[in-house]
């Protein structure tokens, strides 16, 4: 099954070129040039991975990550950054980012991470569904 990803970066030319490369790798890709625009999408929950630029005008990557995780902790976020600092990286991981890659990222590495994100999300969704089923079975209402 093709991974469904959302790419968010304020550099329109970057995001479109990366999207074209991802599509040629059989991924289903949507793009946004700001975090605010991305978060307005009604289908945010449906992505296997969100690839997000750390430094963006307006809502930056960390703020967007916080908002995404608040909405749906199962969503997997990979951050891209032009200037990775150890502190920002640690902070991003603590906030639930799956990984932080430095720009320009290697396409094969990014592809691997996206596939990993898809697998992780699947495990989390399955675990949540099983828990839900167990709760229903164990409830008095059943």
């Amino acid at each position: 099954m093709a991974e469904k990803i959302l790419l968010i970066d304020d550099e329109a030319e970057f995001v479109e070129t990366l999207a074209a490369r991802m599509r040629s790798r059989q991924m289903e890709v949507s793009t946004a040039t700001s975090a605010a625009e991305a978060l307005q999408r009604e289908d945010v929950d449906s992505y296997d991975a969100i690839v997000l630029d750390l430094q963006m005008p307006g809502m930056d990557g960390l703020a967007a990550l916080e908002e995404i995780k608040k909405r749906n902790p199962q969503l997997q976020v990979i951050l891209l950054t032009g200037k990775a600092t150890v502190e920002k990286g640690v902070q991003a991981m603590k906030m639930g980012a799956m990984d932080l890659l430095e720009k320009p990222a290697d396409i094969e590495e990014l592809t691997r991470k996206i596939k990993e994100a898809g697998d992780r999300k699947m495990v989390l969704v399955t675990a949540a569904s099983e828990k839900q089923v167990k709760e229903i079975i164990g409830s008095k209402a059943w």
Partner: peptide, 21 residues
């Protein structure tokens, strides 16, 4: 400035990569 240059390099890299694809 280095952040801006990194962004430019990222676009060049992806464009060259796309041409390679």
């Amino acid at each position: 400035v280095s952040h801006e240059i990194k962004n430019v390099l990222a676009i060049i890299k992806e464009t060259a990569g796309l041409l390679g694809d």
